[in-house]
């Protein structure tokens, strides 16, 4: 039952996912190449519910990470950090493997994954865009910058563009308050960003 609820919550993906497994966004992570996707319900025409079938290799990888921490449930957060680092994100199916390996319930793992904002259950874009909405950036106009990113990319916070290129998120303070408002694309930090400068930033990734 628990896993059914999880899947309902999580695995609503675009219909195109059938042609490119799990969407273009995942192509640069290892998970995408060999994982199979099967649909188990199609309530609407465009949106299909899918469940990933993890490849043997991925399952082994997750189990290896768990072994690295001695299957200690107390290390769950470190295990999830490493797993997300290796696979790009933590879909329900991955959580199930982790839970099984540590001999805890899937609900427990799900509870931890959803509690912390650092963990994501949907794949991020190839170039994750993060807008700092800390106080210093807020008073210097971060909100307008965020609105402009939303407009230009056509997505809201927490979403990924159709082509899997960009995803949009907010973060609280990268500590570069002297350069407020601050935007991060991947690891690169852009300082003193104005709404007018948004296009120039995105254009820098045009041909990548």
């Amino acid at each position: 039952m628990a896993s059914k609820i999880l899947n309902d919550d999580l695995a609503v993906r675009d219909g195109k996912a059938r042609q490119t497994p799990s969407g273009g966004a995942l192509l640069n992570t290892e998970l995408a190449k060999d994982d199979k996707i099967y649909t188990y319900a199609a309530p609407e025409k465009e949106k299909v519910k899918v469940k990933l079938r993890l490849s043997e290799e991925k399952v082994m990888r997750i189990k290896e990470i768990c072994a690295l921490f001695d299957y200690n449930p107390g290390e769950l957060i470190n295990i999830l950090h490493q797993t997300q680092h290796a696979l790009g994100y933590l879909p329900a199916e991955v959580q199930e493997v982790v839970a099984h390996s540590l001999n805890v319930s899937t609900a427990h793992v799900y509870g931890v994954v959803t509690f912390y904002s650092y963990f994501t259950m949907v794949p991020k874009g190839r170039f994750p865009v993060s807008i700092c909405t800390g106080t210093a950036c807020y008073v210097r106009g971060a909100e307008k910058v965020l609105d402009e990113f939303k407009r230009q990319l056509g997505i809201s916070v927490g979403e990924t563009t159709q082509d899997g290129k960009f995803s949009l998120s907010c973060l609280r303070c990268v500590g570069a308050c002297g350069l407020a408002p601050v935007v991060m694309v991947g690891e690169k930090v852009y300082g003193r960003v104005s709404p007018d400068g948004v296009k120039a930033i995105l254009d820098g990734y045009k041909d990548l």
Binding site: I77, N78, Y116, F119
Partner: peptide, 8 residues
């Protein structure tokens, strides 16, 4: 070291 995961 123990890592946080983004929770104030």
């Amino acid at each position: 070291l123990r890592f946080g995961a983004g929770a104030f």
